[in-house]
């Protein structure tokens, strides 16, 4: 029996550790055979109230490869929201036309709300600064693919750890696997206390740093994120710190042999393009994994795989 059937995926914590692992196993099956007519006759709504390239295209690619049909919009301006329609009414209308809703929305908690008013399952493709669970699952898939395990790894998180929702969700998910964490960020973009408390409560170790050099030789995964210039009130301050957070080829000289660099993308200048040619760079493969993981999530929720 597939326990995910007809359930919404709003927050990574909605699914147990065992259920998360089932999704990863199913994704591995899709990686071997991503084109199957499993979603023939199914209609999936893709509601993107704010623009997204990677997530939207990856979902659409995942559905198309399985033969499903997609309806929806890629920005709020082309929906009734621009006429002042509430999210409640949009969801209650759209749920009549589809079997599942995929939603990206700029407001925190909008996905939970949508899942409560919708009569079809909702998959959260990012709700403001809150959650992005399908990204978390594809990050986990990539970590397992490269390290052959999820347990007892040392993971370095670099960049904007305060606002980066991918960091918060991945941290919570990997905390179930007895991992150790190193946080590298400017002080004012440090990981929130709320997250450190949760890591502490689980009895796991973490350390805080302000440059990549302090952690790069010890980690199994270096999870890079973008530091946005607009977060800095003083542009000179941004110029001063940005080099600490730019990963260069020379930084990788003494890294562990199996170490991989991940990034949820888009990247700006936090990973120098010369790093791309090394076998440690794994962010484009990570983006590809998004297709298999999303195929697994949709197929399991719709109950077309066991």
């Amino acid at each position: 029996m597939n326990s995910l059937k007809n359930r919404s995926l709003v927050s990574i914590n909605d699914f147990s550790k065992e259920e998360q692992l089932l999704i990863l196993d199913q994704a591995a099956e899709f990686e071997k055979n991503p084109r199957q007519p499993l979603l023939n006759g199914y209609v999936i709504a893709s509601l993107f109230f704010e623009p997204s390239t990677r997530t939207r295209l990856s979902f659409e690619s995942a559905i198309s490869m399985l033969g499903g049909r997609i309806i929806g919009f890629s920005e709020a301006g082309t929906s009734s929201v621009s006429k002042g329609e509430s999210l409640r009414d949009t969801i209650r209308t759209v749920n009549n036309y589809c079997d599942l809703i995929i939603m990206r929305h700029p407001i925190d908690g909008s996905a939970r709300f949508a899942s409560e008013v919708s009569r079809v399952p909702v998959v959260n493709a990012g709700d403001g600064a809150n959650q992005h669970p399908t990204q978390t699952l594809l990050d986990m898939y990539t970590i397992r693919q490269t390290q052959k395990r999820l347990e007892n790894l040392k993971i370095g998180f670099v960049g904007d750890l305060k606002y980066g929702r991918t960091v918060h969700s991945l941290l919570m998910a990997m905390a179930n696997f007895n991992c150790e964490f190193a946080f590298v960020s400017p002080r004012f973009l440090a990981i929130p206390q709320q997250n450190k408390d949760k890591v502490n409560d689980l009895g796991l170790n973490y350390s805080e740093h302000n440059n990549i050099g302090e952690v790069i030789n010890d980690v199994d995964i270096l999870y890079m994120t973008r530091i946005q210039r607009e977060r800095f009130s003083d542009p000179a301050e941004y110029e001063k710190v940005k080099n600490f957070y730019e990963l260069k080829l020379s930084d990788l000289e003494n890294a562990k042999p199996g170490m991989k660099v991940l990034h949820p993308l888009p990247r700006v200048n936090e990973i120098n393009i010369e790093v791309d040619q090394t076998e440690k760079a794994y962010y484009f493969e990570q983006a590809l994994n998004g297709v298999y993981v999303r195929q697994a999530i949709i197929s399991m929720i719709l109950g077309v795989v066991s």
Binding site: I107, G109, F113
Partner: peptide, 28 residues
């Protein structure tokens, strides 16, 4: 979302003492 749509607020109490901590059911 509770400050943007007509939604009843809901908080889960995650810690009662010594320090009261509650998590918003919606924005977490």
């Amino acid at each position: 979302i509770t400050n943007h749509e007509t939604v009843t607020t809901r908080f889960h109490v995650v810690n009662k003492s010594p320090e009261l901590k509650m998590e918003c059911h919606y924005c977490e």
